[in-house]
Design a protein around this nucleic acid. Structure first.
Length: 488
RNA sequence: GGCCCGUUGGUCAAGAGGUUAAGACACCGCCCUUUCACGGCGGUAUCGCGAGUUCGAUUCUCGCACGGGUCACCA
């Protein structure tokens, strides 16, 4: 066997290139990665592309890109190579038959010459009599001579794994504990197909062993085939890996999250304006809980924090609301510059004004957005004042109505006209001077100002910020407009 | 249908034979405040059902219900 560091954790992510990367897949990859990195181990990417039927063009690139943008750098894989390649399963096809033959030799597997007709017939009979369909072991009872004769005659065959007929097999899973199944329910599964190629179940075991995988992280749908895997490991005399089976990510109580149902894939979430690190953070929390109370972690922190014992057994429902909240938390942690860089394209969707003060705008926007896609709608009043209703001036808590709003704006206009250096600071000073002079509550002046310059009920920032964003000329113009509107 | 697995608030979940059953999101109040947010404080749950074991069970056992998975020459 090829050499690689012994005693260290080696995990693998082994996706089939069948389309988009869904959230559950990504989570499996994440867990496998974290498990390896926690121990300073190796994370391997293996592409399982043996099903040409389901192969989707470009799917491999999606896998690469997703893992890369998320930051799951694989140490060994198709593109970077490694000591136990090739890392693309279709390039390993020639390798498996000898292992199957070895099992035939040792009596753990046998040639099966049954054709599809017989198999189907068998299945029909079994179903009719209420027995669960299972190969009846017919060919396992063939004599050496019979087998040789058929082989010589060129009869097509498969190689099947010979399951024990009595007793039970128990295996241990790190998240589910010990699971025992009766050997009698185990089917003599096919290892090598008529075309000489291995089935997934067989290739998987051989590959995992050859690649020195110590911890197998995969979906819980493999739970029921794990006994067969272990029997294979035992038949070869190989050391079994540690199993970590993960329950699925659900869309609701009964349906799995899946691309087929049009549910969000990683790419979709990115397109919807989620920060990749926020997605990762949320996904890792779906089905795993950290020891303490903190739940915002960078990928690096996760390498320390992640622990198998925190993985939960029951399926988890994907909750967009929580994802959004985490995204909001990440947005707030962004520096002003980073936020601006991310936000700019969204701002420009509805706000094209050249002279708008985007720094003030971004400061106002940042604590108020959970998703970048919220932005266009929030800044749509900047280019042009919306046609608003005077009723907006009525605010119970601010104690404003149309009449006193009119006088506030009238008082404010000349004061603001006096401001020469139009900065947020100076506008603020001017407004509060007036408030002090008049001896009124802040809201009495500032609420009407906000309505006049924005024409909206909710805005990023208050009247003062909006004035600063709009610039002097436009602000005054809107205040005057408000005055005439209220004067009618 | 057989076998395997799961079930703590709307969601993610911690917990453990005796706890005021954590925390987060959402929701509702209050505070802060020029709106909305942000931030701060507080509120909302007898742990699917029924038995059993026990002085005591949400935590152990057994049934039931519900949900999921699996029974391919697919991966």
């Amino acid at each position: 066997m090829a050499e690689f560091a012994k005693g260290k954790v080696r995990t693998r992510f082994a996706p089939s290139p069948t389309g988009y990367m869904h959230v559950g897949n990504l989570r499996t990859a994440l867990y496998a990665y974290l498990l390896a990195k926690k121990d300073d181990g190796t994370f391997i990417l293996r592409i399982e592309d043996t099903d040409q039927e389901r192969y989707v063009e470009g799917a491999v690139d999606i896998i690469y890109n997703t893992l890369k943008t998320v930051g799951l750098q694989w140490d060994e894989g198709p593109d970077v190579g490694g000591p136990v390649g090739p890392y693309v399963q279709s390039e390993r096809m020639g390798l498996f038959k000898q292992y199957a033959l070895q099992l035939v030799e040792s009596g753990h597997a046998y040639y099966c010459f049954c054709d599809k007709d017989r198999l189907e017939e068998l299945k029909k009979i079994q179903q009719a009599s209420g027995i669960s369909p299972k190969y009846d072991g017919h060919c396992s009872r063939l004599s050496k001579e019979e087998i040789q004769a058929k082989l010589d005659a060129g009869v097509p065959y498969v190689i099947r794994q010979k399951m024990p007929t009595e007793g039970a097999t128990t295996f241990h899973d790190e998240v589910f504990g010990d699971i025992t199944v009766e050997n009698s329910v185990l089917d003599d599964q096919i290892l090598i197909k008529t075309d000489g190629m291995p089935t997934y179940n067989f290739a998987n075991v051989v590959d995992d062993h050859l690649m020195g995988i110590t911890h197998v992280v995969r979906g819980s749908e493999y739970l029921s085939s794990t006994p067969k895997y272990n029997l294979l490991y035992d038949a070869f005399g190989w050391e079994k890996p540690v199993y970590i089976h993960c329950s699925p990510v659900m869309k609701n109580q009964t349906e799995k999250l899946s691309k087929r149902n049009g549910d969000a894939s990683f790419e979709d979430l990115v397109a919807k304006g989620y920060l990749t690190q926020a997605i990762v953070n949320y996904i890792v929390l779906l089905g795993w809980s950290p020891k303490g109370e903190r739940e915002i972690f960078t990928l690096n922190e996760l390498k320390q924090e992640f622990d198998i014992s925190g993985i939960s057994r029951s399926p988890a429902i994907f909750d967009t609301q929580k994802l959004k909240a985490i995204n909001g938390a990440y947005i707030r942690m962004l520096s002003h510059e980073d936020f601006k860089a991310h936000a700019l394209p969204y701002i420009h969707q509805t706000c094209k004004r050249e002279d708008a003060d985007l720094d003030v705008l971004c400061d106002a926007l940042q604590p108020r957005c959970e998703l970048f896609t919220d932005i266009p709608e929030q800044v749509d009043f900047i280019d042009a004042l919306p046609d608003y209703d005077n009723a907006l001036y009525i605010h119970k808590k601010m104690k404003t109505n149309e009449e006193n709003s009119l006088s506030s704006l009238k008082a404010l206009l000349p004061v603001l006209e006096q401001v020469t250096d139009w900065t947020q600071e100076n506008i603020h000073g001017a407004c509060f001077n007036l408030i002090e002079q008049l001896g009124v509550k802040n809201g009495l002046i500032l609420w009407p100002l906000r309505v006049a310059v924005s024409g909206k009920q909710f805005t990023p920032g208050g009247g003062i910020e909006i004035c600063a964003i709009l610039g002097k000329e436009e602000s005054l113009k809107r205040i005057r407009h408000g005055i005439t509107k209220l004067s009618v």
